[in-house]
Amino acid sequence: MRTQVAIIGSGPAGLLLGQLLSRAGIDNVILERASRAHVLSRIRAGVLEEGTAAMLDEAGVGARMRAEGLPHDGFDLAFDNRRHRVDLHTLTGGKRVLVYGQTEVTHDLMDGRDAIGAQTVYEARDVQPHGFDTETPSVTYEKDGQTHRIACDFIAGCDGFHGIARQSIPHEALETFERIYPFGWLGIIADVPPVGDELIYANHPRGFALCSMRSTTRSRYYVQVAADERVEEWTDARFWDEIRRRLPDATAEAMTTGSSIEKSIAPLRSFVAEPMRFGRLFLAGDAAHIVPPTGAKGLNLAASDVRYLFDALREYYIEKSTAGLDAYSQKALARVWKAERFSWWMTSTLHRFPDQGTFGQRIQHAELDYLFQSRAALTMLAENYVGLPF
């Protein structure tokens, strides 16, 4: 088989890149090691920056997002038994975020790809990129007991943190930066109305908590837990009791509880691999970087990588220029590191660290107190939360 761009991974990054390329007349094939049903079962983030939402519109898959997504003009930070609102819309000159689950984004992109007849190979085993440091790269995979080979011009590695794309790059050619956090997020989904109209981030002596949502009838809640905590030890009753302890009294009393339909623990890490290009192999999304979920940047960073990579590939095929491809890694990483900084700051400000002691807790309190006494500080928070410009 021959294609112009071989894409490894059918998460949001791979699907969005493929959809944009196809609509621009650039041939591509997506290879995914899991089944379509498994990809759709992944529970992930749900806060979209305006730039990400605009890209989904550009890809022709934004109609359901616009109809069902929940525009949010702000969010609350809770501490000292009070909720303090961050007015994103006012602080950023009219910008907002859109609450719309990543599973729904993936579903819309899959449907869009089906509608234009673009090819995705699910359950492609032993995917391997070859020759990406030459002019003739290719990708091989196994399917139905046979080995297949796709010749291509470029390979896009959109296959996540544990994927083969980054692992295929010679170790000495990459520099990696990582911080592992000593806690995780225990999250549940329940078909109960959200406790507030917007997200609530809580700093509490017992640990961080987040009240989020997927719709007006489905809620997504999280509490900080130790890194070695086991999800089996958390009954629904224990979870509801714990999150209510970490919220202001009035918010806890207003919370509706119910049976969870999903429960899991996610570890937290910050990670960046540099560069994001090696020859004709380009990394995008979690294959190149991971952020803690505190700042809602994971999916949005993947979309920004796709913005730069798609523009560069279109420039290559339409204008016959390699300038965008040559600048891809530097452009993408400049935005990645700013998002890493913001996510680290949000995580450091809102979570309890085992070694921080009372001094660290007082610093957190001073930081939060200062935020709501300084419009400049709040503007910094708001500008980063709604998303920095491409």
Rank of each mutant, 00 (worst) to 15 (best):
P275T: 02
N203M: 06
A165C: 11
S138L: 10
I26T: 06
F177A: 12
T103M: 05
A252R: 05
L301C: 05
G74K: 06
L77E: 07
E198C: 15
L268Q: 03
I169Q: 07
M346G: 14
T140P: 01
S343H: 01
D286R: 03
W185D: 10
R246S: 05
I43W: 11
G324T: 09
D249S: 04
V5E: 09
R220D: 03
G298Y: 03
I290P: 02
R83F: 01
T134D: 09
R33E: 14
R246V: 06
C158Y: 11
T90I: 13
D126L: 11
F208Y: 10
V5R: 05
L283W: 02
A34E: 13
M346C: 13
V386N: 13
I150F: 14
N81E: 14
N300V: 08
P354V: 09
E135V: 13
I189A: 15
E104C: 00
D249W: 06
A296D: 02
R82P: 09
A6W: 07
S35D: 02
V225I: 12
V336L: 10
F208T: 07
F154R: 08
P275Q: 04
T176Y: 02
N384I: 05
H72M: 02
T120A: 03
A24M: 00
L40S: 13
W344C: 09
N28I: 06
G196V: 02
A227L: 13
D76R: 11
V86G: 13
D27I: 05
G101Q: 09
A288K: 01
P267G: 03
